[in-house]
Design a protein around this nucleic acid. Structure first.
Length: 459
RNA sequence: GGCGGCGUAGCCAAGUGGUUAAGGCGGGGGUCUGCAAAAUCCCUAUUCCCCGGUUCGAAUCCGGGCGCCGCCUCCA
């Protein structure tokens, strides 16, 4: 098995990946389903998909767990005055929070499928794991890391060894209350809620040892990952924005409950930016997959576009660049439609491919290799197809479905007829046939060796 | 205020000390053609924000500027 090197945020180094057991456990932070996920969110999910596909390609068995946050996030980070996002969405759409969650979960799954993102082994909605969260919190409380204030139960971060190690936070230099006032009852500015008491207008609420209420913002990932992957698992992924707060606090919770950092490798996808600003709902500069479809883009063109930059660098989104990605992908498809059935694969390209993948998932380099294969005259058509289909196990760009199209008899007959007309210089009639074929998706090319047709998929 | 990152052609970007600075898109030109389309070939950064330094050798390392961005408890 080839050695896979991945960048670990915990150590800030590329490290050789060494799994804990026979099955690799991966946890990825999923969406909050109060609105559509945007293409910035999906950049991260596609990065995670590439990681998982790469592991499987290299021969690992992978168990992938993703949560669905269908409860409890607030509109602001102000834990004593913010509104619950689910409730805001429910009011906006005149639905119950559960209906909202269901609707946007389905939308999310649809977009995942259209981007060819492999399904997680387990997709876990938070609301179905309230009891697991309560048990997790009890453990934290039993170990003496929690305290009660009027808002609810909080975690005392001063008791956590190396709190903030993931983000390399230097607590002495951070500015408490830089953005928001610190609640006076909190023992330390960085302490965060494990369980919040529900105000009366809060629709989603559950009974707990700490009163009727709802779980804090980080506990679902701790509870769900522990339940399905164990106290310590292999890889934890998410967006870079999760490093300083969400993942930092997940680590704190696991330390409080089990005395351990829950994952060995922490990997984070960089932002999709637009005009040098991060794409975000609050910035008001988002595109959804649906938006792009309406503009005539295919979701896989977006997937290709994501691959033009490495996952740890910001990727600047422009419609021009996306169009470029779509054109490039369509060209690859055209090549594939003219390639015969796959034959053997030359080792040297296979090795190059693996090498690029194993170097911290270098997809831009993989794309360069794709083009190298397409343009390499020393390869047979069958070899090219074999390689491209092999690469597509990780790329997931739909290469396999682009098969050589046999020319039907009726097309051949029309071609013969057109050639006859051309010889007779009856060009208007010949052009009419060409136009008719084009409308059926058959593009005629007059080459020095006679006419050629090819099927141009209507997208 | 603190911490971190980035600045490579018109656009999106690889590259992290050593042959001609990946690749794609776009653009230009040639071939082909009744026209068209496609295909194909060639061209498109003597140079990597600027200024110094280290080195036989730097886009890559160091120092100093300039510009941009992110984070400091919502956020992929």
């Amino acid at each position: 098995m080839a050695k896979l090197y991945i960048y670990n945020t915990l150590t800030r180094k590329k490290e050789e990946f060494k799994p804990l057991g026979s099955e690799v456990g991966i946890y990825t932070c999923g969406p909050t389903v109060y609105d559509y996920a945007h293409i910035g969110n999906f950049r991260t999910y596609v990065f995670e998909d590439v990681l998982i596909r790469t592991l499987r390609y290299l021969g690992y068995k992978v168990k992938h767990v993703m949560n669905i946050t269908d409860v409890g996030h607030l509109t602001t980070d102000d834990e004593f005055s913010g509104e619950d996002k689910m409730l805001v969405a429910a009011r906006r759409e005149r639905k119950s929070p559960w209906e909202i969650a269901k609707f946007y979960t389905e939308a999310f799954k649809r977009d995942m499928r259209s981007l060819n993102i492999s399904e997680p082994t387990i997709l876990a909605p938070a609301t179905e794991h309230i009891q697991d969260m309560i048990e997790f919190i009890k453990r934290i409380e039993r170990n003496g890391y929690a305290y009660m204030i009027s808002l609810g139960l909080f975690l005392d971060t001063s008791k956590i060894p190396n709190y903030g190690i993931l983000a390399r936070l230097d607590l002495s230099k951070l500015k408490p209350g830089a953005r928001l006032p610190v609640h006076p009852e909190k023992r330390n500015p960085w302490d965060f809620a494990l369980w919040l008491k529900a105000p009366p207008e809060h629709i989603m609420q559950w009974d707990s040892p700490w009163g009727r209420g709802y779980p804090g913002w980080h506990i679902e990932c701790s509870a769900i990952s522990t339940k399905y992957l164990g106290e310590v698992f292999d890889i934890h992924c998410g967006g870079v924005d999760h490093i300083p707060v969400h993942h930092t606090n997940e680590i704190a919770q696991s330390q409080a409950a089990y005395g351990k950092i829950p994952a060995n490798y922490w990997m984070h996808g960089e932002f999709l930016v637009i005009g040098d600003r991060r794409m975000g709902k609050s910035e008001g500069n988002i595109y959804t997959v649906e938006d792009l479809k309406k503009m005539g883009f295919t979701p896989l063109a977006l997937r290709y576009f994501y691959f033009t930059a490495h996952y740890r660098t910001k990727l600047n989104f422009t419609l021009e660049a996306l169009r470029g990605a779509q054109n490039a992908l369509e060209k690859i498809y055209q090549h594939l439609r003219e390639l015969p059935e796959p034959t053997g694969m030359p080792e040297r390209y296979l090795n190059k491919f693996k090498q690029a993948l194993c170097d911290d998932l270098n997809m831009p380099r993989v794309l360069a290799i794709v083009w190298e294969v397409i343009k390499d005259d020393s390869l047979s058509g069958g070899e090219k197809r074999a390689l491209l289909e092999e690469f597509d196990k990780v790329l997931g760009l739909g290469f396999v479905s682009q098969k050589k199209v046999e020319v039907p008899d009726w097309v051949r007959e029309l071609l013969t007829k057109r050639e006859q007309l051309r010889r007779e210089r009856r060009y208007a009639e010949a052009d009419a046939i060409r136009e008719r074929l084009r409308k059926e998706g058959w593009e005629v090319q007059d080459t020095p060796d006679g006419p050629r047709v090819r099927y141009v998929k209507v997208t």
